[in-house]
Simulated assay, not measured.
Amino acid sequence: NVRKMAPGMGKDQVRELLGWPHFSEGLWGVREWNYLFHLRTGKTPSDYVTCQYMVRYDDAELATGAWWKTDECAALANPPAVAPIPAVPTLMPPQKVSLSADGLFRFDGAGADDLLPDGRERIVQLAADIRANFKVLHYITVTGHTDRLGTDTYNQALSQARANTVRDLLVQAGIDRAKVRAVGMGKRQPVVSDCAGTVATPALVKCLQPNRRVEVEVQGGN
């Protein structure tokens, strides 16, 4: 109840909280009410100190403030707030998701207009998963890859354009753009390399499909 005391309270309000003062100080025009309280300092009832507490009033008999006689008593009655220990983010290993380019883009496409409906939905869902699972986000790397069909220059440009498109859609879906970078690797990092042939037959295109991909690597914590 002492902690509920506030300036501006009338004597009746103070009496409801603290009771009558513990010293006889007259009936009319009294400017001070004094109390004695036993404040515990330990776990047992005998571990306590006796503290004097004074309430002062103005001419309108409204409390102007209240004071403990000693700093020790003030500290016992109003212990300092303990600041919570800040949570330290738990750093998780980098998480990598590989998205098939054939499932993201129309054939030979790389721009936003070339995104397939299912591909667009998958990227948006990926952004939602990242926001939900990474409370602290350090970086996201979007890397585009192609198969070995076509020239080096063409494949490099295609892989970069696809990475840029996926990056832009992640940003549109709520990911901080400053945390996302896009990289094109062309055909330099294939995941399958035992597909025979150099002519783009249907069989070869199918065999090389795993190489046509966009990888999203996320580093962060929770």
Rank of each mutant, 00 (worst) to 15 (best):
N1D: 10
K4F: 03
M5Q: 12
A6G: 01
A6E: 10
A6Y: 02
G8S: 05
G8A: 03
M9N: 04
M9F: 08
K11Y: 00
D12E: 10
D12G: 03
E16S: 09
E16Q: 11
G19S: 03
P21V: 02
S24F: 08
E25Q: 13
G29A: 04
V30F: 00
R31T: 07
R31F: 02
E32C: 01
W33C: 01
N34S: 13
Y35T: 04
L36A: 13
L36G: 09
L36C: 07
F37M: 09
H38R: 15
T41H: 08
G42H: 01
K43T: 13
P45R: 11
S46W: 04
D47Q: 15
T50V: 13
C51M: 00
Q52G: 07
R56K: 10
R56N: 13
Y57R: 00
D59C: 00
A60Q: 13
L62T: 04
L62K: 06
T64I: 08
G65K: 01
A66V: 00
W68G: 12
T70K: 05
A74T: 04
A75I: 07
N78I: 13
P79M: 07
P80D: 09
A81K: 15
V82Q: 14
I85V: 15
P86Q: 12
P94W: 06
Q95E: 10
S98Y: 02
L99T: 03
L99E: 00
S100N: 09
D102S: 14
L104T: 07
R106A: 12
R106I: 10
F107N: 04
L115N: 02
G119L: 02
R122W: 00
V124I: 10
A127N: 07
A127H: 04
D129H: 12
R131I: 03
N133D: 15
F134M: 11
K135R: 13
V136W: 10
V136C: 05
Y139E: 14
Y139G: 09
I140D: 08
I140S: 12
T143L: 08
T143Q: 10
H145R: 10
T146G: 01
D147S: 14
D152R: 10
Y154I: 07
N155D: 05
Q156W: 01
A157M: 00
Q160E: 13
A161P: 00
R162T: 05
V166H: 11
R167F: 05
R167E: 05
R167G: 08
D168S: 14
I175N: 11
I175C: 11
A178K: 15
K179E: 08
K179C: 05
R181A: 15
R181I: 15
R181M: 14
A182F: 06
G186W: 00
K187T: 09
R188T: 15
V192R: 04
V192C: 08
C195S: 06
C195Q: 09
A196W: 00
A196R: 07
V199C: 00
V199L: 13
V199D: 08
T201I: 06
L204V: 10
V205I: 15
V205F: 02
V205Q: 10
K206W: 07
K206A: 15
C207K: 11
C207D: 08
Q209P: 02
R212E: 05
V216L: 04
E217S: 11
V218W: 03
G220D: 07
G221M: 05
